[in-house]
């Protein structure tokens, strides 16, 4: 087993442990548990980063060339953003809604073929790095918006139903959840837009046409429209709070389908 595979397994184990602690935290959280969870996530993140670097060194190109690598990189982006938000805002319980998602994506990544194949000539372009990094950082922002959207709905339910039990005390305020949700989408949306544009440019240089109605392209466009609607109704009609949260949850489901579903169900030129 190569070094990079061992690093991956270690990272996966740390994420698993972090996810377990996160779920436990929902039932009985203390300062210690959230500290433990954060250290586990940071450790997983570092090993994960080492894994990605190792793969880069070994393969000689950005390791986002197959579905395994792509989903691994995707979850790494999510953890990065999560740690950033945690550092910046210290939102209680955010980990409980994010780390399980990270673990599931990593787990599916671990079950996909991990072989490092030589890059096919069409993909050998600097567009690979730009297009994929933009797409995954954008998707990671949507993933966090999804987690925060769920937190919003849970907290909103407590406040609306006037039963302030359970997680009410530990969840952040509605306003901050709504604000961060909005901010994440304003980060994710331009990145997704750029990813689609760079993808089109890359397609033109590789295959000779900008847009070929490939299922991945179509679903990316659907995703783009959903988030465009989220931003539009927010700015024009002042849709915020519950509706914005629901839309961002829905949006991320489409992101996941675009990412995994299209590859398994539909035929696509994209390898991931």
């Amino acid at each position: 087993m190569g070094v990079e595979l061992i690093l991956f397994e270690i990272a996966l184990t740390f994420y698993f442990a972090a996810a377990i602690v996160c779920v436990l935290e929902l039932f009985k959280g203390t300062r210690t548990t959230s500290k433990i969870m954060l250290s586990l996530a940071v450790a997983g993140f570092l090993f994960h980063a080492a894994n990605i670097i190792a793969r880069y060194v070994l393969s000689g190109h950005i390791p986002i060339a197959n579905l395994h690598e792509a989903s691994s990189f995707f979850s790494w982006c999510i953890v990065f953003l999560f740690l950033f938000l945690e550092y910046r805002y210290r939102l209680g319980l955010l980990g409980s809604f994010i780390m399980p998602v990270v673990f599931v994506i990593m787990l599916s990544s671990s079950m996909l073929p991990r072989k490092m194949e030589p890059l096919s000539p069409v993909l050998q372009s600097y567009w690979l790095g730009i297009h994929t990094v933009l797409a995954f950082v954008g998707d990671a922002a949507f993933a966090l918006a999804f987690g925060i959207g769920i937190m919003y709905l849970v907290q909103e339910h407590y406040v609306k139903s006037r039963h302030l039990g359970g997680l009410f005390q530990r969840l952040p305020s509605l306003q901050i959840l709504d604000e961060i949700n909005y901010r994440l989408i304003t980060i994710g949306f331009p990145l997704l837009t750029l990813a689609i544009i760079t993808g089109a440019l890359w397609a033109e240089s590789a295959w000779g046409s900008y847009w070929r109605w490939d299922p991945k392209e179509v679903w990316s466009l659907i995703t783009w429209f959903i988030y465009a609607v989220v931003l539009h109704v927010r700015l024009i009609a002042g849709w915020r709070g519950r509706r914005a949260a629901i839309l961002s949850i829905l949006g991320f489901c489409v992101v996941l389908f675009t990412f995994f579903g299209v590859n398994f169900i539909l035929q696509s030129k994209h390898t991931f």
Binding site: V159, F168, S173, L174
Partner: peptide, 8 residues
Amino acid sequence: ELAKKIFT
């Protein structure tokens, strides 16, 4: 307290 959970 409730107001703070709505408005930060």
